[in-house]
Simulated assay, not measured.
Amino acid sequence: MPDSFTAPVSRRRFVAVTAVATGMALAGGCALPPADDEPDPLLALAVAAARDARELAAADASHGDDAPRLRRIADARRIHAERLYAEIGASEIDAAEVEPGDTAEPIDTADVPGAGSPAVCPPIGEVRERLREDARRAGEVAVDSRGYRSELAASVSAACTTAVEVVLA
């Protein structure tokens, strides 16, 4: 007898479950902001997204039929990193100094750890594990945040879950 049971999930059911999970994460948007002495919780999400964007873009023929899918996920993770870094930069600007229509300069992603070494795409099993962990962590950040930051983290969580359960299925 198997130790665990995994049931196939239809795309419709997956979308419904993801929508409910995102709604629950957004409902937690009324939580208190982190203390000033704690690091910004979006920073860990941004670093992970930048790492994934860099490494998954390096998918080559050794990844077989998964290479194009990994590169599409890399594009999504690059956008996650850009938006997260932009929000981190925006949160550091004093609101009194911002004029209507101004935008915050995103943090340079070249400062991401490991950005100087050649990118190597990990095996597909490790990619799935990373994305699941990133989805879990982003969901926690969404629950603990509020407003746009909560929405941003929830969308990262949903995108990582979709990448694992639909794109890499």
Rank of each mutant, 00 (worst) to 15 (best):
P34A: 15
A138T: 09
R11A: 12
R149T: 07
D60F: 04
A58D: 06
A104M: 08
S145D: 02
D37H: 12
D102G: 03
A142H: 04
A7P: 03
A57T: 02
D52Q: 12
C30V: 11
S150N: 08
G125N: 07
I107Q: 00
G147K: 11
H80E: 07
L32V: 05
A135Q: 01
C121S: 07
S150P: 00
G125M: 07
A67Q: 04
V156Y: 01
G28Q: 05
D37A: 10
V127M: 03
L168G: 02
M24F: 08
R83Y: 02
T6M: 09
A67D: 05
V143E: 10
A35E: 15
T103E: 14
V47R: 08
E140Y: 07
A27Q: 14
A35L: 14
E133G: 03
G114H: 05
A159S: 13
V9S: 03
L56S: 02
A119W: 02
E99S: 10
R83K: 12
A58M: 05
A21T: 07
A169D: 12
E97T: 12
V141S: 03
L45I: 08
F5K: 10
A81N: 04
E82H: 04
A74Y: 01
D111M: 14
I107H: 01
D52S: 13
S62D: 11
A115H: 15
T6W: 10
G114Y: 02
P33Y: 09
D66W: 03
E38M: 08
D111A: 15
S157K: 01
V47T: 09
L32S: 10
A44M: 05
A86M: 11
V120W: 04
P106R: 09
S91P: 01
E129P: 00
A57F: 01
E126Y: 06
V112D: 03
L131Q: 05
A49T: 02
D65G: 13
V167R: 04
A115C: 06
P39M: 14
E97R: 13
E126L: 10
Y148G: 01
A48N: 04
T109F: 00
A81E: 01
A59Q: 02
A19N: 13
I79Y: 06
R146K: 12
G139W: 00
R136E: 11
E133M: 08
T161R: 12
E151M: 12
V15P: 00
G29Y: 05
E165W: 09
P34Y: 11
P41N: 09
A104F: 04
V156I: 11
G89R: 03
A19D: 15
D75F: 06
S10C: 10
C160E: 01
A59P: 01
D37C: 07
I73E: 00
E151L: 14
A31Q: 10
R146A: 09
L152V: 10
P123L: 13
P123H: 15
Y85W: 12
A135Y: 00
A163I: 04
R137G: 00
A81V: 02
L168M: 04
V141I: 11
R146Y: 07
E82F: 07
R78D: 10
